[in-house]
Each structure stands twice: as C-alpha cells, then as structure tokens.
C-alpha cells in the first residue's frame, strides 16, 4: 500500500498549469467573495489570502477540505472536478462570520 501510495505521489503531480485560479480573501473573519462560481467537472485552484492577523482554517465537509491559513499569509487549495451543486465552506475558527459557498455550474 505504501509503495502504491508513493507511486501515486510521484505520478500524481501533473497539469497544474492549465488549472483555473480563483482568489478568495479573508478579512475581518469574512470571505470575499462569499460565493464563488466554478465550472462543473473542472479542477480549480483556490488561492486563499488571509488579510487578518489571526489564523483561520478553511474547512468544508462537502468538499472534504481542511487547511490552516496563518495570519497575513496565503494558501493554495485544489478543489474539483465536481458535479454541479452547492458546496458550502467556512472558517473553522470563526464559523459564525466566515461563511461562503462554491457554486458549481453546469456549462
């Protein structure tokens, strides 16, 4: 299993260049924009920029994503390819305000 995993690690690092990039900013524990739209069945690179001094954790149960973004730093999160639908995400450290969603649109 480890060998298989390693093989996947070696060959899995592919096609980053053609991936669309979407920027999300975190400011005052809010996501800007709070709603992002991405095309269906496409891998997308989210560039999350944290403008707050405190850390935030980008989390989404629907997207199966979880990542700590330190204060005044940025982070890259790959999502997709996804079927059409709505995928909420939130900041785990400030979930009452840091709320957003990814809307996947069928083209």
């Amino acid at each position: 299993m480890m060998v298989l995993g390693l093989g996947l690690v070696l060959f899995g690092h592919y096609s980053v260049a053609g991936t669309p990039v979407i920027e999300i900013e975190i400011k005052d524990h809010l996501f800007f924009p709070a709603t992002i739209e991405i095309p269906a069945n496409t891998k997308v690179k989210l560039l999350v920029i944290n403008r707050d001094l405190t850390a935030e954790e980008f989390e989404s149960y629907e997207l199966n994503r979880e990542k700590v973004i330190s204060g005044n730093r940025k982070a890259v999160i790959f999502i997709g390819p996804l079927p059409p639908g709505e995928y909420p995400f939130f900041g785990e450290f400030y979930p009452k305000t840091a709320q957003g969603k990814v809307v996947v649109i069928d083209q």
Partner: peptide, 9 residues
C-alpha cells in the same frame, strides 16, 4: 438570508 458588507456579516 445572510450578506457580507461594511466589514461584517
């Protein structure tokens, strides 16, 4: 509903 403006939710 919810909306973000003026730096708040």
């Amino acid at each position: 509903g919810y909306a973000n403006f003026d730096g708040y939710r």
